[in-house]
Design a protein around this nucleic acid. Sequence first.
RNA 1: GACCCCGUCGUCUAGCCAGGUCUAGGACACCGGCCUUUCACGCCGGCAACACGGGUUCAAAUCCCGUCGGGGUCGCCA
Length: 483
Amino acid sequence: MKPARTRIAPSPTGDPHVGTAYVALFNFALARKTGGAFVLRIEDTDRVRSNEASERMIFESLRWLGLEWDEGPDVGGPYGPYRQSERTAIYREHVERLIEAGAAYPCFCTKERLDALREEQRRSKSSVMGYDGHCRSIPPEEAARRRAAGEPHVIRLAMPEEGEIVVRDLLRGEIAFDAATIDDQILLKSDGYPTYHLANVVDDHLMEITHVIRAEEWISSLPKHVRLYEAFGWEPPVFCHLPLLRNADRSKISKRKNPVSLTFYRRAGFLPEALLNYLALMGWAMPDERDEFTLEEFVEAFDPERISLGGPVFDLEKLIWLNGRYLRNLEPGDWVERLRSEILPDSYLREVAALVRERVDTLGDFMAYAAFFFTTGVEYDEAARARLVVKGRTPPQSAKLLRTLLEEVLDPLLEWNAETVEAALRGFCEARELRPKELFMPVRVAVTGRAATPPLFETMAVLGRELCRHRLRRAIEVLRTMK
RNA sequence: GACCCCGUCGUCUAGCCAGGUCUAGGACACCGGCCUUUCACGCCGGCAACACGGGUUCAAAUCCCGUCGGGGUCGCCA
């Protein structure tokens, strides 16, 4: 097989996702197997949600897993820059080429009109969804004049109005779409940044990516991508859509139903090699069917054609079993080393000590008092369960309240520290007309399993977002089944 | 709703493309046993699936068609 150039192209919004690691693993394997290159490209074209902290966490997580990249924003390479926000001139130039060729056009429709259109389509249960091509009929000269006059606009891809668009997926073969059912995708947003579709195609071509291995959710936009390659006159890469990781109910994996943050797995003491091994088992099996193997062995045996297509349910229990196997196979010294570096690093001990110091009288009491800082989950005994309930509410109502707090207030937090957590909790109390103390005890117990702890916000900050969310989810479950 | 993808034990999968070797194999979970001062590990055994209906064929989990079921997409998010 010829050397393949593959890439992982995460968007730095929020915590690095287990799905990113999954897709990265397969891209990594093909690149290594063929002696090609594995590229990391940061797709930070969403100006509102992208942030630097998230980008750093992506680097850290992928490195932790051992999925080292050959080219990327931090290591450079011959096809840079590898951060899309630094490539906007390239996209604009390419978009002009499309406009000149008549393959794209400016659209002046307002957000309001598009919202109304969408609403109407939804309401009337219309079979055609998406943009109606309203601005497509504007004569090019007029459009150019309005653009020059500074009228806000986006650039859309002009899809063929009829005919079939046939695309090819390495695992599924040919897939045919009716061109008439595909709307004119926005390529350039009104802020001048490209959408995924444009940036992705342009970069994959310019970076000479040979195999686009990504998640199945992209299949429906494949015709748009293929049309773009055609409009540019470029040879498309090989497309290979991996099955989507699933929740137990078979919906696309989500943080609401599963821990999806790589940070969580690291924090909970999973070994990177075990997580990788488990991920490889999702949709793939060794020719000899053994289910324990190293990354090197995976790469050696890798063959994309062996990937199975059923959406695999992410089963934490099997991951835990596998992790246990890996842990037991560690040399005693190595075992202690991992414990020290992942669960008991000095930096963490210092943070915990700062909170616990004045609350214990002997060092011997430390662990008993601070145990919850070092475990993944916590137990709720009968007394704790009682305090999980918000005053004046039933357990199910309390569950609902905590769920809202988690999903609408805590999850959207861009930064997680004592100040932001405090502001979020207090804001929630105000909005819900709750007295702080009525909410804080249930949250405290949910997050620590105890009624007596160091100050809540500092405690939550030190525990970290992932452990807090994990325990809150568990507490919500417990509340639901009470009485 | 429209379009697209998928469909082997509860879960991850092997087998399917090149139909017989499949009374469908392995792993997790579960159950039972052995080991053991306890727990865990480990070992042994057990339970458990080709979604359904038609067709092709001497023969179908494997090929074809339909049905049903599940999922994804339909954002100036990626």
